[in-house]
Design a protein around this nucleic acid. Sequence first.
DNA 1: TATCATAACTGATATATATCATAGGGAGCT
DNA 2: AGCTCCCTATGATATATATCAGTTATGATA
Lengths: 231, 231
Amino acid sequence: MSKILDTSNCKHCAYRSWAFNKLDQQALEKIDSHKTEVFYEKGEVICTEGEEVNSFLYLRKGLVKLLTTEKNEKEHIISIGKPLDFIGLLSIFSNSNHIYTITAIEDSVVCFVDLEVIKGLMRQNGKFALDFLEKSSRVADDVINTRISINTKQLRGRIAYILLFFANHIYNTSEYELPISRKELAQLIDMSTENVIRILSEFRKDKLIEIEGKLIRILDGQRLQRIYDLG
Amino acid sequence: MSKILDTSNCKHCAYRSWAFNKLDQQALEKIDSHKTEVFYEKGEVICTEGEEVNSFLYLRKGLVKLLTTEKNEKEHIISIGKPLDFIGLLSIFSNSNHIYTITAIEDSVVCFVDLEVIKGLMRQNGKFALDFLEKSSRVADDVINTRISINTKQLRGRIAYILLFFANHIYNTSEYELPISRKELAQLIDMSTENVIRILSEFRKDKLIEIEGKLIRILDGQRLQRIYDLG
DNA sequence: TATCATAACTGATATATATCATAGGGAGCT
DNA sequence: AGCTCCCTATGATATATATCAGTTATGATA
């Protein structure tokens, strides 16, 4: 079950020195007094598509997925959020309701800061606002570029991409526990579950990776990269 | 050929009252004195992938395409920019070099404002910065959502989407001149040129549209919408 | 006007990918 | 223990889409 955490340790939060480095002591204290830190177990929903947005939220620990449900009922995973990511993406500034559902795919800690407080600080402090704009732009660009490069590649290239993504951007190691099922992988890189499984098996037979359930061990990252590059 | 225009008519620019409505007279004059307005003929390149970013740019008249060239040499169109769009997208804030090439697909007028001037105004004026963040967030969201919904649909749905896109979002009429070739349509909605042509022909045979070269006349928008919705 | 290049188009075929069918394995539940 | 559900897995088949080949328009240029 999710539970609200004691927030007395905010002063040493890495996020603070990253995203809030343009704020003075007084502003930081204001944020501290308008925030809540919540622990979520793997699988729990953090916020739901359609819900009113009233917090700015960032991930302190764990891993989350952003997903959307199209009219045709199929779930699509937009992106994976990692610690220090501003997981609501930009939509919380343009939209009064969440356009994505966010779910913990590992035990996670999320900070909720009152959105009006953040906006108020931005209005007062243009440097903070600009700094935030620059940082969040990078996130938005990443999502766009990732979508394009996934969709212009065929299945082997997509699987190569996602394996390297977890190795290089999430876990920083060539051996890791996949945080999501094969079905979710499929939703993330736009392919059928069966083909995700099939191509993982091919890669195993080709000695590119080893698989033990959710455990992935990358044996030949360079060749994987080449498969991705070639499409 | 492109040519620099006289900019004496800035005071009545629609963009100004849209994007710059949080700025005072002095700030507006500063922008005026650091901007250049340039006319581009259809087909001319406005900025190139890799080039250094030193301007904030918005479209006053015409229509442009944003494209990127993947490693595999294929061009992909990211989005179509229309008047009042902030055509550099967010990347100009996160990246010191352009990540897209922008080309006029109709005779166009583009305003270049010194980016440092804009950033300076944002630092001074948090309300302006936040307002801009909210507006540009919407653009980024649109691009992301469009990419996802295109890629989760099959060919007929994609063609239906793009036909309705030009009708509803660009020209606001059910009869219009397509500003791009079939090949460019294909690059925009991720399919082969032949299939773009084929499905346009199917739609013509099905009495959904009429086609005369680049002229499109939508006969049954509701049915097109249904084709899009169903995928 | 003739010529060339490129775009639009169509049919036939190959390929990529999804879907269907089936089965074993593991987790949670009674 | 047995049951049920979902995940993983694999093969066979159907379908969607791209590619290849060839034809007809269209527009630019000399």
